[in-house]
């Protein structure tokens, strides 16, 4: 394969940044959450790329653990969103300001 590693890394960085944009600018909690998943996947991609180009399988094991973590995180996170929605009748995080001073 002739794709240079830094192309993949640059692409992963771009993907990560797109995820960040989603987290910071979207007001819908579910979409924010999906953006977090995009960020995680960007990192995963970088891991797999390094694993491939360094010939070391540990990077892929790491991705495995990140996926486990992501599954747990999504389950809990979505549960939080559901209970927030149940209590506040909204999933717009600009309206959820319980931590305001």
């Amino acid at each position: 394969m002739v794709v240079p590693l830094y192309h993949i890394l640059a692409f992963a960085g771009l993907l990560f940044t797109i995820g960040v944009v989603g987290v910071l600018f979207r007001r819908n909690a579910i979409i924010v959450f999906m953006s977090v998943e995009i960020m995680l996947n960007a990192v995963n991609l970088a891991f797999v790329a390094f694993s491939r180009y360094h010939g070391n399988v540990n990077g892929q094991v790491f991705v495995f653990f990140i996926m486990t973590l992501a599954a747990a995180e999504v389950a809990v996170g979505l549960a939080i969103i559901v209970s927030l929605f149940r209590n506040l009748r909204t999933s717009d995080i600009s309206e959820i300001r319980l931590m305001k001073h």
Partner: peptide, 19 residues
């Protein structure tokens, strides 16, 4: 910075394609 870090990582340990 993300790009930069990646490139730097490549510079310090040049990666071969290890299929």
């Amino acid at each position: 910075l993300l790009i930069g870090q990646g490139v730097r990582a490549l510079l310090t340990s040049p990666a071969e394609d290890a299929a």
